[in-house]
Amino acid sequence: MPAPATPPLTELLRAAQAGDEAARNQAGRVVYDELYGLARAYLGRERGDHTLQPTALVHEAYLRLVGQVAPWKNRAHFFGIAAQMMRRVLVDYARRASAERRDRQRVVPLEAADTVSLDDVGAGGAEDVLAVHEALEQLERLDPRQARIVELRFFVGLSLEEIAELLEISPATVSRDWAMAKAWLRVQLRDM
């Protein structure tokens, strides 16, 4: 007999927050698998001597996620928060690594709109992640949606189509905002 189909993550999250322990466990497995896949893809593109492992990144992000009290509205809301948690973990890790080196003269290449991800950052990952984080904080004050798109693309590695689905906007809007945010970030990062 085949196993029953897994309900969509939104349904699992809602049931888990309503107190359904089975849904909480099932949501945890689904979330963990998705976060692990994202972390593995990200860290697989990092420089060879990177010491942060996918499991450690997922565990730290997951611990921060389960500490959230706000109800999850849907899958998009959850992964938006997950993007923030992964970003915080990566930034905290980068700060620790940077404190050991203090080399802040890195430039982050944000070239091709369809292929920019953390693999484009280069061998100086810690400093690059910090530079992007600082610029992203500035962009967030100017245009929160563009900042969110960069966060989802750069720190989580989602495609433009996935971002459009999560933010419930058109792919054309995501593409346009991504291009504008990249241009703005390119100028900011050149000045850092």
Rank of each mutant, 00 (worst) to 15 (best):
L63A: 10
R64W: 00
R64E: 01
Q68H: 12
V69H: 14
V69C: 06
V69A: 15
A70W: 06
P71L: 11
P71I: 08
P71E: 07
W72A: 13
K73A: 13
K73S: 13
R75C: 00
H77W: 07
H77G: 04
F78H: 04
F78K: 01
F79D: 00
F79W: 06
F79Y: 12
F79N: 01
G80E: 01
A82Q: 03
A82E: 02
A82N: 02
A83W: 03
A83K: 04
Q84K: 11
M85W: 05
M86K: 04
M86F: 07
R87K: 09
R88L: 09
R88G: 10
V89Q: 01
V89A: 01
L90T: 05
L90D: 03
V91D: 00
V91E: 00
D92V: 04
D92T: 07
R95V: 08
R96Q: 13
R96I: 11
A97M: 13
A97S: 10
S98N: 15
E100M: 13
E100K: 15
R101G: 11
R101E: 15
R104A: 14
Q105I: 10
R106M: 11
V107S: 09
V108M: 08
P109I: 05
P109D: 05
P109K: 07
L110P: 08
L110I: 05
A112D: 15
T115E: 14
V116M: 05
V116Q: 02
S117M: 09
S117N: 14
L118F: 12
L118G: 15
L118E: 10
D120M: 13
D120Q: 14
D120F: 09
G122H: 06
G122I: 00
A123Y: 10
G124R: 06
G125S: 15
D128A: 15
V129P: 00
V129K: 07
V129E: 03
V129H: 03
L130K: 06
L130R: 07
A131N: 00
V132E: 04
V132Q: 02
H133C: 06
E134P: 00
A135T: 04
L136G: 02
E137K: 07
E137S: 08
Q138T: 14
L139H: 05
L139A: 02
L139C: 03
L139V: 07
E140W: 08
E140K: 14
R141H: 08
D143L: 04
P144M: 04
R145T: 11
Q146I: 04
A147V: 00
A147D: 02
I149P: 00
I149R: 03
V150C: 06
V150W: 03
E151I: 02
E151F: 05
L152Y: 04
L152N: 05
L152S: 08
F155Y: 08
V156C: 13
L158H: 11
L158K: 13
L158V: 05
L160D: 12
L160A: 15
L160E: 12
L160G: 13
L160Q: 15
L160S: 15
L160I: 14
E161M: 09
E161D: 13
E161V: 12
E162Y: 06
E162R: 14
E162V: 09
E162M: 11
I163P: 03
E165D: 14
L166V: 11
L167H: 03
E168N: 11
E168G: 09
I169Y: 03
I169S: 03
T173P: 07
